[in-house]
Nucleic acid binder design. Sequence first.
DNA 1: CAGCATCCTGCGTGATACTG
DNA 2: CAGTATCACGCAGGATGCTG
Lengths: 121, 121
Amino acid sequence: MAKTSPARTCPVAAFQKMISGKYKLRIVWDLKDGPRRYGEIRSGLLRGAEGSAEITPRVLSRELKALTMSGLIDRKDFGEVPPKVEYRLTRKGKSFVPVVAAIREWGERNLGEPVLTEAAE
Amino acid sequence: MAKTSPARTCPVAAFQKMISGKYKLRIVWDLKDGPRRYGEIRSGLLRGAEGSAEITPRVLSRELKALTMSGLIDRKDFGEVPPKVEYRLTRKGKSFVPVVAAIREWGERNLGEPVLTEAAE
DNA sequence: CAGCATCCTGCGTGATACTG
DNA sequence: CAGTATCACGCAGGATGCTG
């Protein structure tokens, strides 16, 4: 459906869809320091979260696959046993890091504290 | 800082939670130009989306309430009939606009095109 | 006009178990 | 180690109808 439709799927909506999922953003952030293996990502996510119990392989796998299909990360399978797979940011993924950084920065400044609504209530 | 704060609810996770919902980001973006009435927001969201059919009052209402409770927007009820309610960004909400801007900018640059996964790297 | 009440459905996510 | 398969469930979110 090429369509002539000029209505460009609202970038924000597309973004929402791309990062939908509880771990995608954190995975990207985790990979900014370099390639990581499946298990490392998993452990990393666990360390970062105090609330999450465990990330099931099914979920993590899905997130990674989605990120790969979004073109943010790249999967490198070393083949052979024992299995070794590394995930790394693509160029697109790297270009996305600053955005995540902005999000984190803002979040740290405004979400760390218990919502101090300056005039609310 | 109450708590020992070793595991600070990951800002990214908090962010995700805050903007969870299909319209929150777009509502914030819409309000950056100034206060808007309920109906205006609704129409605005419809214009911006080519895919969304209609936003049900139930959903929009919920999003607005959530944003209000997050401290991003402020609800001003003019009372009296006919009902007139305006929503506007709080200081916190305004500080969030640049982040959304970054998201949009990145999205426009990278999500408008059909994912050209650069094989090379 | 700006909502709320009710019903219904798909999907994201967690738990558990198994495999190459 | 790095996944896949199956089951189950909560909840976001759409449809409809009603109200102050």
